[in-house]
Write a protein that binds this DNA or RNA. Structure first.
Lengths: 248, 248
DNA sequence: CGCAGAATTGATACATCTCAAGCTGGGTGG
DNA sequence: CCACCCAGCTTGAGATGTATCAATTCTGCG
């Protein structure tokens, strides 16, 4: 891992940007102190692989900033993204040695890591952590099932629209902007990564984005910067029933 | 719910067929005693809906015997199965009021239920339960991600073969037969249910099953009883890399 | 026996993939 | 400063896999 750096100067958990959403969200201050003792930061540059599928994984951790992807690959090269990791998301599975997926940094990435053994030991003694991890895992399971509907039953156009609503929502929730009127955000993924997420080819992704643009559902400034003039229109295109869900 | 019955005569947890695999697997005998106090059984006939998506759900529980499905439906009727619930699998989400999915019994079904409130309270006091539930949820998340690869990237033939390997494996693990030589099992799903699982139409499912039969990968006795003469051949057809995985 | 639900099979339509050719924009070296 | 280069992206034309629509054929059961 050529460009990985281990950041030495620790950030105080109290000042951590993901303090209230990560696996440590429920911890009391004394629990945080013990976590501080075993935590360390790692940084990755855009494009770097964090872990290869099948590799031994001796740590778990949280995404602090940046975006990473979880992907599976078949022998012949077909790949499917199975998770999109955003700030506060948890990486790794307590109680398992190897990684089941490739984890790749798609932007510059900072992670807050814990060696697996001490973390597992701490989980045993700290219900707040185990409880929060269960809650987060259940949320991920719901997201995965939502994605199964997208993969199994939606058209290419609906798939693209679905992905855009997800990114738009997440961006809105991070930046605390209410999604009334126009929404503006950047695509953190290449066309190819979108294709891997959606079970499409990159050409189809490109064509459907062009079509949504032509139909006035979105507009683009450059290749990555998106404006959505009418969010409910985008939701319709995604085939999502309820117009709401923004507060979920 | 016309034909639902609440079975009054309780079964002792010690004699329960899913004792060692369900959410209660790790419980000590005193913990089991407290669970006995709040548990009750419910039975459903094949075809009955256990819960509708969006309905208030005041219980959680485990499948004791039979098979149920978790499905999502779009406004226009497209449906995608997002989970297949087998004996010992857990239904419901602590900390959430409504069900996110339709739960349907595809065979006669017996569930061991707990009212949600008492169960949640018990989870707080009983790390063995919370811990086991986390473990089971992580397993389900892995299964969901595996399924995302099937839905997103596999061909119709590979999808059918993948489903058959899953059912064959599960059947082998329940019946403790080693899968050397021929494997024989029943399909617990209609062609339509398989189609909903795989993101296909029932016609395509039927055609691909016929094709696998024609090519000697499987043979059928009746519509539902399957013989697999060479399991590794089936794995090849599924596009799965490793030939193993039976012990997972 | 004959019906009804489940499954198979056929013919055709269509969405997406595949292969192939350009385009665009930002960075680099002469 | 310009020319080039390259990854990322767009667009086109044709091939292909799966869906759709429509008949039959099974199978179990009253």
């Amino acid at each position: 891992m050529l460009n990985e750096k281990t950041v030495s100067h620790s950030v105080e958990c109290g000042d951590c940007p993901i303090r209230h959403r990560a696996v440590c969200a429920r911890c009391e201050s004394d629990e945080l102190e013990r976590l501080e003792e075993i935590k360390y930061y790692r940084s990755f540059e855009a494009g770097q692989t964090v872990i290869w599928s099948g590799d031994r994984m001796d740590f778990v951790g949280s995404v602090v900033s940046g975006i990473a992807t979880l992907t599976q690959t078949m022998e012949d090269g077909r790949t499917q993204m199975v998770g999109l990791l955003l700030p506060s998301d948890f990486v790794g599975r307590p109680g398992r040695d190897g990684s089941a997926y490739d984890v790749v940094a798609t932007t510059d990435l900072v992670m807050c890591c814990f060696r697996k053994k001490p973390f597992e030991a701490m989980m045993e003694r700290t219900p707040h952590i185990a409880h929060r991890l269960l809650e987060m895992t259940l949320d991920e399971l719901d997201a995965a099932r939502e994605w199964m509907l997208v993969l199994g039953r939606k058209t290419a156009r609906e798939k693209i629209a679905s992905l855009l609503t997800i990114i738009a929502r997440r961006d809105a929730s991070l930046n605390l902007r209410t999604p009334k009127g126009a929404m503006v955000f950047d695509l953190p993924l290449t066309r190819e990564a979108m294709a891997d997420y959606l079970g499409l080819t990159l050409e189809t992704v490109s064509r459907q984005i062009s079509a949504l643009k032509r139909d006035g559902v979105i507009s683009l400034q450059g290749k990555r910067h998106v404006t959505v003039p009418d969010f409910s229109r985008l939701l319709e295109e995604a085939g999502d029933d309820s117009d709401g869900g923004l507060l979920a």
